[in-house]
């Protein structure tokens, strides 16, 4: 028992000392449902306003009754007679049984249409299809001919919104894919394949994150969607398809990387590293963030991460590899060439 408490105190202390990196994604808007950029999110917002109207009205009626009673039906000072006893009234009670039933019916019909509109069981024409795999605690985006992590790139055309059709799978526990501005959320469940239709109508960077508690670092399982003009997207995709850059100048760092346990979990295409438990590093430097969005992908942050990820994302699956400062510098120099 004592040990447990000491342990708790220790961990509190350790967390106070832990260094906090400069956080997050630059210039990403709040992931609010009130700023939708696609059809499913639009539908949801429309239904929300309808709900606000109907429920607001009901609420006002009941509150008015309560406040009327509170203000008008106080016991006068010095009056201890009993008021008239009203046992009930069939017509009134019938009214407040039937009217809510009708309201429920209307609300049900409207929302049911919304369900069938949003929950698509097959991809719309021209949709970009991506397989999303939830891992503890990062997202893998599998485009078919390449895979990336944490940042989902989609093309935007001038004339029409882009449909995104995701196939959701989990490698371990239940996660939930949630991009509030692009649509609803759908859980990512092991041993089950789910689909999610999102839509994005204008270029920009959007954020979201895992919504189903999945363990220690659930809070830092972030998602970024980068919607970019088609030409830009194609250039990005073409680069992703290529194997990793092999720069002789950083051969020392590459050597350390390949002889350390890094390769058991990470893939760098074109080398022997082909692990699948952790993000694909083939084009690490094409991503804006590291650690599934917890920190910006700057040289300093990268060094801090490789030195000991547990300082930045305590509890995450990547251990400190106990490299020396020099080794960390060499490895990071290598990683920084993986554009």
């Amino acid at each position: 028992m004592l040990i447990g408490m000491v342990n708790f105190a220790n961990s509190m202390l350790a967390s106070l000392i832990a260094s906090i990196p400069d956080p997050g994604i630059p210039s990403a808007p709040t992931p609010t449902m009130f700023n939708p950029v696609g059809a499913p999110a639009d539908t949801i917002l429309d239904i929300t306003w309808l709900l606000v109207g109907i429920c607001g009205l009901i609420g006002l009626v009941v509150l008015a009754m309560i406040f009327f009673a509170v203000i008008r039906c106080r016991q006068p000072k010095g009056d201890d007679t009993e008021p008239a006893q009203v046992y009930g009234s069939n017509p009134i009670e019938l009214a407040w049984t039937v009217i809510p039933l009708l309201i429920v019916f209307v609300l049900f019909m409207v929302s049911a249409r919304g369900i069938f509109d949003i929950e698509k069981t097959s991809p719309p024409d021209g949709a970009i299809e991506v397989r999303v795999i939830g891992h503890r605690w990062w997202w893998e985006f599998d485009y078919g001919d390449f895979a990336t992590a944490a940042e989902l790139h989609v093309p935007i055309d001038e004339d029409k919104p882009t449909d995104i059709y995701l196939t959701l799978e989990s490698a371990d526990v239940i996660h939930s894919f949630w991009m509030p501005q692009l649509g609803g959320k759908t859980d990512v469940i092991p041993n089950r394949i789910n689909h999610l239709w999102l839509q994005v109508a204008k270029a920009g960077t959007y954020v979201g994150q895992c919504a189903e508690y999945c363990g220690n670092q659930h809070a830092n399982m972030l998602i970024t969607v980068v919607a970019q003009p088609r030409a830009e997207y194609e250039a990005w995709a073409a680069n992703q398809r290529r194997e990793a850059v092999d720069d002789r100048a950083v051969a020392a760092g590459k050597h350390i990387f390949l002889r350390t346990a890094c390769i058991n979990c990470h893939t760098v295409r074109g080398t022997v590293a082909n692990g699948t438990f952790a993000p694909d590093l083939t084009h690490l430097m094409s991503r804006d963030t590291i650690g599934s969005g917890i920190a910006r992908n700057t040289p300093n942050n990268l060094r801090a991460w490789v030195w000991d990820p547990q300082n930045i994302k305590p509890g995450c699956e990547m251990p400190s590899m106990k490299l020396t400062r020099e080794e960390v510098d060499l490895v990071c120099a290598y990683l920084e060439t993986l554009r």
Binding site: E82, P83, Q85, V86, Y87, S89
Partner: peptide, 17 residues
């Protein structure tokens, strides 16, 4: 009785005094 006595609002005035 509630059902049978209340065609409208069944009101009974009580006077404790």
């Amino acid at each position: 009785r509630t059902g049978s006595t209340s065609e409208d609002i069944a009101v009974t005035t009580m006077s404790t005094q």
